[in-house]
Design a protein around this nucleic acid. Sequence first.
DNA 1: CGTTTGCTTGAATTCTGTCAAAGCAGGTGG
DNA 2: CCACCTGCTTTGACAGAATTCAAGCAAACG
Lengths: 198, 198
Amino acid sequence: MKPTSVNPIIPEIFKDTSLSEDEAIHVFRKFKKVLITKGEFLLKPGKKVTDLHFIQQGCLRTYAIDLAGKEHTLQFAIKGWWISDYIALFGKTRTNSVSYIECIKDTTLYKISKTDFDNLCKDIPEISHFHIRNLEGAFASFHKRILENLTLSAKERYLNFIRAYPNIEQNVKNYHIASYLGITTESLSRVRKEIANK
Amino acid sequence: MKPTSVNPIIPEIFKDTSLSEDEAIHVFRKFKKVLITKGEFLLKPGKKVTDLHFIQQGCLRTYAIDLAGKEHTLQFAIKGWWISDYIALFGKTRTNSVSYIECIKDTTLYKISKTDFDNLCKDIPEISHFHIRNLEGAFASFHKRILENLTLSAKERYLNFIRAYPNIEQNVKNYHIASYLGITTESLSRVRKEIANK
DNA sequence: CGTTTGCTTGAATTCTGTCAAAGCAGGTGG
DNA sequence: CCACCTGCTTTGACAGAATTCAAGCAAACG
């Protein structure tokens, strides 16, 4: 798509996807701009999940709380990423949300309903292929994450994390990272100390 | 697709997908039937990964070996599932395989190259949408697995596993399951004992 | 300034992994 | 048909690692 598009956000959302001006306008109509500030929630458990969210600017995280009351971070999302409760939105058995999506830095995002997105995929092959590329990439990342969780120590996982998300560190708290890595904040603190002492 | 199709395997592979007779024939030509027996490998680390595999009958698993020489099972796959090294095949940075795909029960499968599959997606929207449905479902499953790994104890994860894969147990060894759950065979043995004593 | 929030530290505890050995199949060959 | 492998699971004792609980500290914030 040419940079002369009337909807500058569309080429940003659908990177490497060529849409006609008409298509871009049609697609743009399905999105809704949302501003959300630090500390607010995009989603809470028990709610019906209907939307996908593209982050133009900011930072959020998805987490769940277990029976013991502990938080577990499923994913972080920054500029250029999509976020939702994918277990509820993509799962074969449609359930309500099991997760919180918390804004951890003032954020501008564009949301679209899954229904509208599905229709765009049906109507516009380029959108289909875009979605496939994204899903395949995300699928590979999650395989990798599971493999790393199985094979690496807490220390190695932490080092991987700060290497993979070098820019995220300013926004997220250490206890967010700990709950993402599957360890306690105390353990993470000790790991960090160990790394610093070298 | 009507059951009168000349290629009975195609409706089995592309479930809930309506293809014309011509399309089905075109699609069928891209697949290659493979027979593989227990103990053989579909893939080993360091190899170039090019294919997707649809399992018509049988059972396989994907695993990796860490620096300490321990196996870690990434996924099992049975009748009706697809298997590959998705980290290598779908990852943004194209790398060679990091995993073994081992046949743990005599298997009949149909393979197709990723290139051919991509072309089918481009040519036949129905295939695109099929692929999206599959990826979305698989993506949700992996989110769920990560969340369960973070929130549940080894015992609960094991109970979930045998509930989720009731038919798999005849084929897979306990040490396969242990390496899937991220615990040692000894720990799994103790968990099983605990469960039996109730 | 006082309070809150997040990070660190220490000591006790619990859990899981490690190592070594024994038990228990199922399969093979004598 | 039996004895012997071989591969897998179980068990116990021990060591090590991570969690828990409790306290202290520093920076941020109203």
